[in-house]
Simulated assay, not measured.
Amino acid sequence: MRRLLTALAVTAVLTGVPTITWADALPGFTLFGGPPRENQLPFRLDFGGNANAWDRYRLRIPAKKMNLAVAQFSISYPNYYRGQFDPKKVEVRVRGKSVPLQEVVWDKENRVIQIYPVEPVPAGYQVELVLSNVKNPNFGGMFYFNCQILSPGDVPLLRYIGTWILSID
C-alpha cells in the first residue's frame, strides 16, 4: 500500500510541473477563437497591464516575420479598447537601437496607430515597437492588436504580419 501511495504522489508531482511552467508564457493560452498560433506575436507589458493604470507596451515582431523592409507600421486595435496612447512616446527599436521616426499618427476614430520611420526598417531583424506613456482602459479584458506593414515602393496595400493578444487585468 505504501508503494502505491508513493508512486501516485510522484506521478502527481511529475504531471503537474509542465502545466505550471506552461501557464506563465506569453502570449498565453487562447481558449476560444483568436489567430492561429503562428500569427500570434510576442509582447511585454512593463508595468503589469493593470486596468486604469499607466503602462509601457513592448510589441515585438520576430525576425522571421520581417522578411521585407518596412516603410510604415500600422497597429489597429478593437473598438472596445478605451485606453490612450501618447504618439510622442512611440519608439521603434532594431537590434536594441532606436530608429529615427518621421511621424507617428494616432487615429482615434479609426482605432489605428501609424508609425513612419525616416528610413525603411531593414528586413531580417527583430523589431520592437515600444509604446510608452499608455493609459490602460478602465476595465480589463483581452484585446487583439493587429500589426500590418507597408514596404517601400510596394503597392500601397498593408500586409498583415500578426496579432498581439494583450490581456489587461
Rank of each mutant, 00 (worst) to 15 (best):
Val118Gln: 10
Met142Lys: 09
Gly28Ile: 05
Ala71Leu: 03
Gly153Val: 11
Glu109Phe: 10
Leu166Gly: 05
Pro122Ala: 00
Glu91Val: 09
Val112Phe: 01
Leu101Ser: 02
Gly49Ile: 11
Leu4Phe: 15
Ile165Arg: 15
Val127Glu: 01
Ser151His: 04
Val112Ala: 04
Ala53Ile: 03
Glu38Ala: 11
Ser74Val: 04
Ile75Gln: 06
Asp169Ile: 03
Asn79Tyr: 13
Tyr80Leu: 08
Pro156Ser: 08
Glu119Ala: 07
Leu41His: 05
Asp55Phe: 02
Arg82Met: 07
Gly96Asp: 02
Arg58Trp: 13
Leu59Ile: 06
Phe29Gly: 09
Met66Arg: 12
Asn39Gln: 15
Arg44Leu: 13
Ile75Pro: 00
Asp55Ile: 01
Lys64Asn: 10
Arg44Val: 08
Val104Asp: 00
Lys64Trp: 10
Phe43Asn: 14
Pro152Asn: 05
Thr163Ser: 14
Asn133Glu: 12
Ala23Val: 05
Arg82Pro: 00
Arg93Val: 13
Glu38Tyr: 03
Gly153Ala: 04
Glu119Asp: 11
Gln72Tyr: 00
Lys97Glu: 13
Pro137Thr: 02
Asn110Leu: 11
Leu131Tyr: 13
Tyr160Pro: 08
Leu45Thr: 13
Thr11Met: 15
Arg82Gly: 04
Val155Glu: 14
Leu131His: 13
Val134Ile: 10
Asn39Val: 06
Phe29Asn: 11
Lys65Val: 02
Arg37Tyr: 06
Leu129Ile: 15
Met1Gly: 14
Glu119Gly: 03
Val10Trp: 01
Val13Phe: 12
Ile168Cys: 02
Trp54Arg: 15
Asn79Gly: 12
Gly34Phe: 07
Leu158Ile: 04
Leu31His: 10
Ala23Ile: 03
Ile165Tyr: 07
Asn79Ala: 14
Thr6Arg: 04
Gln148Lys: 11
Phe139Trp: 05
Arg93His: 10
Phe85Gly: 08
Ala7Leu: 08
Leu68Arg: 15
Gly34Ser: 09
Gln126Asn: 12
Thr30Asp: 10
Val134Glu: 03
Asn138Phe: 12
Ile168Gln: 01
Gln114Ser: 15
Pro62Thr: 09
Asp86Arg: 12
Val134Asn: 02
Arg37Met: 09
Leu166His: 08
Leu41Ser: 05
Val94Asn: 07
Phe32Asn: 05
Val92Gln: 03
Ser76Cys: 01
Arg44Gln: 13
Glu109Asp: 09
Gly28Gln: 03
Ala69Pro: 14
Trp22Gln: 12
Val105Gln: 12
Tyr77Phe: 13
Ala23Trp: 15
Leu157Thr: 14
Leu68Met: 10
Asp154Gly: 09
Met1His: 13
